[in-house]
Amino acid sequence: MSNHKTMKQIRIHGRGGQGVVTAAELIAIAAFYEGHTSQAFPSFGVERTGAPIEAFARIDDKPIRTREHIYRPDFLIIQDATLLLAVDVAKGCNPKTIAIINTAKPKAEIKINLPMENIHAIDATKIALEEIGKNIVNTVILGAFAKTSGLISLKSLEKAIKQKFSEKGEEIISKNIKAITRAYNLTK
C-alpha cells in the first residue's frame, strides 16, 4: 500500500461507450480495498456513443468531501488517443502530472503538453483485442495505471473487477483480470 499524504486526483478521458465511468469506479473501488478513502463520479456531456466524456476519481487517507470536478489532475488516463486532437486533455496539469495513454505510437509521436518522462504509452487496444476479444480498453489501461501510480495494487484491482462485473459472469471477469495483469507486467 502506498503511503501518500495528500489527495490524489485522477481524470479519465474517453468516449461514450468506452467504459470511462466504469474505469473511474474501478479505481475508487480498488483504492477502498487498499484501505484508502476514495470517490468516483462521471461528468457526462451529451450522453451518446463516441462523444468525449470525462470521469473522475479521488484517493485520500481522510474523508473526501469535495464534489467539484477535477481541474488539476495528478494522473491523466487517456483511453482514446484521437482525443488528443479534439480535447485539451492536458488542461490543468502540472509538471508532475503523469499521463497514461492508449496508443500504438511511440512516446515521441504523442502530442500532449507534458514532459516526456511523465508520459506512459500502452497499446491497450491490442491487449484488449487479444485478451478480451473486444476493443474495450478501460480495464486494460488500469493495469498500467496500477503499476505507474503505485496507488492501487493488482490484487485490489482484481477485487474491484470482481465486484463491479459480478453480473457479467466468470468468463468476462477472468479475461479482464488476464488483460490487466498483462498490462501491469508490461508497464515499467
Binding site: S38, Q39, A40, F41, F44, I64, R67
Partner: peptide
C-alpha cells in the same frame, strides 16, 4: 442527481 446518485464512495 448524478453528484450523489451516480458517484461511488464508502
Amino acid at each position: 442527481g448524478f453528484v450523489l446518485t451516480h458517484s461511488y464512495e464508502s
